[in-house]
Design a protein around this nucleic acid. Structure first.
Lengths: 147, 147
DNA sequence: GTCAGTGCAAAAGATTTGCATGCGA
DNA sequence: TCGCATGCAAATCTTTTGCACTGAC
C-alpha cells in the first residue's frame, strides 16, 4: 500500500488504513481520535508526521478551509481532481469538478504569464437543506459532482 | 475616514493610515512593523484588534494564502472584487477579475443547491519573470487585471 | 468622570521538534 | 545490531485574552 520508500510500522499502517478507509476531509484531530480507537499506542505527533509524509509522497492532499485547521484527503492521484463548496450553516462539504472552470483558470493564468501548478477554489454559501430549515446531520456526501 | 461607529484614537488612526496607504496584501507582522515606524507606542495586540475591527466593519478583507498567516487588504467595497494568482518562486501576487469565472461559479453553486455568499480562489504557479530566470524583487503589482 | 481602547504578558490552539527509547529491517 | 520512528513534553508560531492603566468624549 505504501511502497514509496516508506518504512512500515504498526502506527503508520494503522494511520494509513484509517485515513484511506474513512476518506473525506478529516482534520488531524478527527484522524487522531479515529486511530486511537484502533491503536491506543499512537501519539498526536505521529499522526502529524505521518500525514506530512503522505502529503510529501503525494498520497494525501492537504486542505485548509476557513476554520483554522488543516484537513487531509486521499490524493488526487487516486481520486479525480475536484474543488469544494462548503455550507456555512451545517458545515457540509460537497465536491465538484467542472472542466469548463478548469479551462477558464488555465486561460487566465496563461494570459497573465503564469504556468499553474495548482489552485485552490472554495465556494462558501448556504445549502438548500439549510435554507429550507431542515435540521439534523447533513446528508452524506455523494461523491464528486460533475458539471 | 472611519466613521462607522468607531472611536478614533491615535493608534487606530496610524494603523488605518498605514494600512490604506500601503494597500497590497500585508501580513499583520508587516503592518505592525510599518506602523511601529510611524508610532512606536503601538502594540501588536492593537494591530490585531484594529484589523479585526476593520474586517468586521467591512473596510478590510482578510486573506489566507498558503503561508500560514492572515493577510489584509482594503475591502472590496472600495476596490473591485478580484481573485489572486501567486508565484510560488518569487511570491508575487497578481490580482485579476473575470466575469466569466464569476458566472461560472454562480452557475455551479446554483446547480448544487447553494446560495453563495463568498468564495475563495487562488491560482499558484510560476510567473514569466521567474521562468525566464530574472532575479531581484518582483515587479510592482499593476492593479487588477481584467479578463 | 466614564468607559472603551491599549500595552504587556500570559493564554490558547495548531503544529513542530528535541531527546531518550523502541522496534523494524 | 543500527538507525529511523515514536511518544511525550516542551517549544514554536500565530492570534486572542485578562487585567490594570490611559486617554477620548
Amino acid at each position: 500500500m505504501k511502497e514509496r520508500g516508506l518504512k512500515t510500522t504498526a502506527q503508520r499502517d494503522d494511520i494509513a488504513r484509517v485515513f484511506f478507509s474513512e476518506g473525506g476531509h478529516r482534520s488531524v484531530e478527527e484522524l487522531y481520535a479515529a486511530v486511537k480507537k484502533v491503536n491506543a499506542r499512537v501519539g498526536y505527533a505521529t499522526v502529524y508526521r505521518t500525514l506530512k509524509l503522505l502529503k510529501e509522497t503525494g498520497l494525501a492532499a492537504e486542505r485548509r478551509f476557513d476554520d483554522g485547521q488543516a484537513r487531509y484527503e486521499p490524493s488526487e492521484e487516486r481520486a479525480q481532481h475536484h474543488d469544494h463548496i462548503i455550507c456555512e450553516r451545517c458545515g457540509k462539504i460537497v465536491e465538484f469538478n467542472s472542466e469548463e472552470l478548469e479551462r477558464q483558470q488555465e486561460r487566465i493564468a496563461r494570459f497573465l504569464g503564469f504556468v499553474v501548478s495548482r489552485h485552490r477554489m472554495e465556494l462558501y454559501g448556504i445549502c438548500s437543506d439549510c435554507r429550507e430549515g431542515k435540521r439534523g446531520a447533513p446528508a452524506k456526501p455523494r461523491g464528486i459532482q460533475q458539471l
